[in-house]
Design a protein around this nucleic acid. Structure first.
Lengths: 237, 237
DNA sequence: TAAGATTGGATTATCGATAATCGTTTATTG
DNA sequence: CAATAAACGATTATCGATAATCCAATCTTA
């Protein structure tokens, strides 16, 4: 909403770090707008309009949008325009299937090399999740859930895997809302406890298997009707 | 090398299809230059220079380079520049690990729903591969190998999986050369035959398992020395 | 002389303006 | 009146030019 403050160096005269490009900040802005619900699936993103709103030129806006298209966050057609991606029911399910494969691989790799520090980190996240569950703070739970999984992937030691996983996450922001309305918070937390124990056991196959089941269960769709009610379904079909 | 011919509409006055953007053509050009060896890992790609060579402005060149960076084909640093990505030994191995996970999932999915047409297509590719092996045409083998795997992924029916797999392929062009020098052509073809039979059996678990082993075996690195000789190793470290 | 400041050339990031294309609306014509 | 063609407004794709940043070389200065 607010124009981006383009003054960067005036504060310190080259703060030595802030090679922050406008396009990156614009990306963040757009992502935030989508995640907050300000922009809905199918909503159009006009380059010149965005540029005007943010007080920048068309170029960095265009770059930001292109990046987000590549990440599966937006969709675009040549000479026509860019809009917020909307997911079909099938695409959501597909994503869960792929995530299950990637994360069970991550669990397999992580199980045999999990440091004490990592175990502790996961335990902390889990504890916080339990607490959030008691307070029925769904936003917090979803956030912690994501952090939990990300921590596991990172501890797989496979950076290519992490990279790929992240792009997949970008492409599935809508699942957040989706899952939020679906599961009991305490149940969610309990499932993660099971997962952590499998990891701690150090048995790669066990960890892999539990993770596989974990993701697929979480992805099991409620009735199509419920999904449709929570989302702008195929608005840009 | 040659300037891109920007005349598009003069030929037919809007040929109804060719919404071909310059940036796409530039992408192809750069990819081709890298695959052909004209550009080597670590080589710098200067926007204005490329623009001049191709007879276009900086904007579409910049977009092309950004896209290829997102695809893992190039690397860039803000305000510094873009260059051809070079892979560490570890990154190559990581890629194989992830590919194994993705493709074994694809095999699992494809096994239970493989159409007769698909079986035939795979068989045809395999036959051609056998023939190419007899003629020791390594370029052709690598090409067919890729086609074989791509066909399987497509027949998994999971478009998200296919999408993700493709970006991974982009990021691993160097493996082509790498593998080419590594395996016996006839052996390669034989391994694919085994794979196809597992798929034809219709047993998802078997197909998945054979695929997993297939990829990991193919990825088993020869001595580090050999790899270093075939590539510009960490030229841009 | 060596550490730090400064300058200059090269390149990227951003800008403002123009050309190309799209979708729709309006005109044409049989 | 229906179907096609022409014109328009909106938006994207591309351009040429400028500002910001990097890097290396030169210049201080203690």
């Amino acid at each position: 909403m607010n124009p981006i403050d383009t003054r960067v160096k005036s504060e310190y005269k080259a703060k030595r770090l802030p090679r922050i490009m406008l396009s990156d900040r614009i990306k963040e802005y757009v992502v935030e707008a989508v995640l907050s619900g300000e922009l809905k699936p199918g909503d159009r993103l006009v380059e010149s309009e965005l540029a005007r709103q943010l007080g920048v030129s068309q170029a960095p806006v265009r770059e930001a949008l292109r990046d987000l298209v590549l990440l599966g966050f937006l969709v675009s057609e040549p000479y026509k325009g860019t809009s917020v991606r909307s997911f079909t029911y099938e695409e959501l399910w597909e994503t869960y299937t792929v995530r299950a494969a990637l994360e069970s691989l991550a669990a397999r790799l992580a199980a045999s090399q999990l440091t004490d520090a990592a175990k502790e980190e996961l335990q902390t996240i889990l504890d916080e999740m339990m607490e959030a569950a008691r307070q029925r703070d769904m936003d917090r739970i979803v956030q912690l859930d994501n952090k939990f999984h990300e921590t596991i992937i990172k501890n797989s030691g496979n950076r290519t895997l992490y990279q790929l996983w992240k792009t997949l996450q970008y492409g599935t922001w809508s699942i957040v809302t989706y899952r939020k309305t679906t599961y009991e918070p305490v149940y969610l937390a309990a499932r993660h406890k099971e997962l952590l124990e499998a990891l701690k056991s150090g048995d790669p196959e066990k960890a892999s298997h539990v993770m596989q089941r974990h993701i697929e269960d979480m992805g099991k769709p409620p009735s199509r009707v419920e999904l449709e009610n929570n989302h702008s379904w195929r608005m840009n079909g």
